[in-house]
Design a protein around this nucleic acid. Structure first.
Lengths: 206, 206, 206, 206
DNA sequence: GATGAATGAGCGTTCATTCAT
DNA sequence: GATGAATGAACGCTCATTCAT
């Protein structure tokens, strides 16, 4: 019954985005299998037939829902790590930024989690996620090395440290569950920092 | 065509266990929705009808797959924390134990993850999981307080520390992905310990 | 592979009706449990999925298959009884009409029979049927009273007479079994009339 | 756990009977499809496996549940009709007997009804039932002829009259539904008699 | 002979996907 | 381009039947 929009290139993009956002929300809430294309369509304000005009299949939609935000997240993280401050300062910013993000976007995290976990089913997708994360971890590892060399971080194994931090980040969603506006995330960010063992104490809040 | 066994009480338990283990593996690998009862049955070496002899429904099977190991895990963790050593020594043991366990049982972790994430669908179950975990976190928080009072841990907020550790533990599965016999978990345990900020340095390996 | 039709309101009704007719035929022939949705769908010329587009569940389909014709039947019967002729003339018309109908729709009768018989399973439905029939029996009872007062019917107990007639009507299906075009039903109608004991003899065939 | 009984021939018969009675009750209550072998077994106090020691299949059990009482009923009816009283007196006794029986055994009637209705599924069985009933109807028809010749019944078509009576008998179950100890059945018997149009008025209650 | 654990065919229902409108 | 009616594969679950004990 609504047939405006999507006449222009921009209209198309808006519609595509609406579908993608609805998909992320529902995939997170109910998981891939239980999030119906019809539900997503309704949430996005289109008919379920329309979804297939924008995405070839449910799986393609899932892939887009996972990869597009992840790429943005990676880009942002890399930008922070490529900044100009001292290694430890950049790590601090990174941790704060990411922890806040994870605390806020628990649901998106779920979607990625599902994609990674079901490697058997979402084969390529899981590999692509791993590749993107690897780029971030890898850069983080360099930064840690840098920090150790500068004496800003206690000596240790950079790869392990980076990995442990990623593990921590991933678990954040589970402990902040619905805490709303509490600034718990700030304390959690401080805790995250401990994994890097900065030599000057925990004081952060730059 | 095979229908021996399970005439004895022990036979029953074995069969039930086989199904439960198969269920954990497949729920982890494919998620609740995509793990078919038939697949689970095949994996367990029984017919799909047999599964319903031991579990009333797929949901009941899922519930058992989640709760039974979790309860065992909680019991074990509480036992360690109620030990006689110093607070920090008990925390060390706990961390090593749990990290090793999580590294080994990545797939089980996935199952719990799904149950918690889809609270809308697995309502009661998610609440029960939270309750069990709460018992552990709560006790851990006390132990941390004790450690701080004894000067074995740097001062801080016990609840936050306990929560951050749980978050970390939860993410472990994602970073060890099938690494098999590597003793990476030992390094990860050391990292986990950092979240508690023990005052005497990282050396653990009791 | 066929998917025309039903774009219009009328198309919808036709399709719905085709399914309903197929359902009545098969429910009668095989009973609720053994009439598969797929069989009904095939008989109606649609895929089994389509059935669920028109009826929420097998039970809903059964309910509609029972109640819709029954309501029509009741309406028609009440119209005859509210006519202007003498009481006995109206009863005659009613009996002829209903006996003919029952002789023709034996299979529909089976469906109602099953619904009434399995009250434990089709609780509400059985009650609704009883209510509809009660409306008819009740009106018939009044009409019988009227006929007795006018001396057109031998004296007796109106309720019992009405009930006995309903019992008779219900059994019709069993004795005409597929006799096709025989005018047996006319003789059976005359027999039915005897239950009312009209004072002027059996001659009917108005 | 109970393994007594059935050691003797008599034990066998008792067990067989218990199963048969339970089967009739449940087939009537829930229909062939929904009456589970296990329910019947439980009701009869045996294990479901045992049912198959006495009846080759569910269908065989159903057949026995239908035919055995029916044969007894036919035998009894024929005995009444072969009695020594006048034709009309014998008809009166028959009607009273059968109406009382039907009012009491509504549930058994259901089972026969199902068997007859689903001729497609219970092919032979439906035919056998028809044959048994035919013997009764046929004899009744002779009796009616006899009554007419003796001037005890108004002239008419004996076959139609007999058939209409059977139809009536069959519907009885539906109108007495759970009325318990009311003597409604006596009035219904009087009504049934009207189908035969006895020349001396309705007074029955011999 | 009696039991009940095990089996697997069969069915109701959901939902991604197609395509006529 | 957008819609939603139609399709049919897939899956959870039930239950008659078998057979080792």
């Amino acid at each position: 019954m609504e047939q405006r929009a999507a006449r222009t290139e921009e209209g198309r993009r808006e519609r595509r985005d609406a579908i993608l956002q609805a998909a992320i929300a529902l995939f997170a809430q109910r998981g891939f299998a239980h999030a119906g294309i019809s539900d997503i369509a309704r949430e996005a304000g289109v008919s379920h037939g329309t979804v297939f005009l924008y995405f070839a299949s449910k799986e393609a939609l899932f892939r887009a829902a996972v990869l597009e935000p992840l790429e943005e997240f990676a880009t942002q993280s890399l930008a922070i790590m490529d900044g100009e401050a001292s290694a430890v300062a950049r790590i601090r910013r990174l941790v704060r930024d990411q922890v806040r993000e994870m605390a806020a976007e628990q649901s998106y995290l779920e979607v990625v989690g599902e994609a990674r976990a079901r490697a058997e089913r979402f084969g390529d997708l899981a590999a692509e996620i791993t590749a993107i994360i690897y780029r971030v971890v890898s850069r983080l590892s360099e930064l840690v090395t840098e920090g150790m060399e500068a004496g800003e971080l206690a000596p240790g194994m950079p790869d392990i440290i980076a990995a442990s931090y990623i593990a921590y980040l991933n678990g954040i969603g589970l402990v902040v569950r619905n805490s709303g506006d509490d600034p718990v995330w700030e304390h959690l960010a401080d805790q995250g920092l401990r994994l890097f063992a900065p030599t000057k104490g925990d004081a952060s809040h730059d």
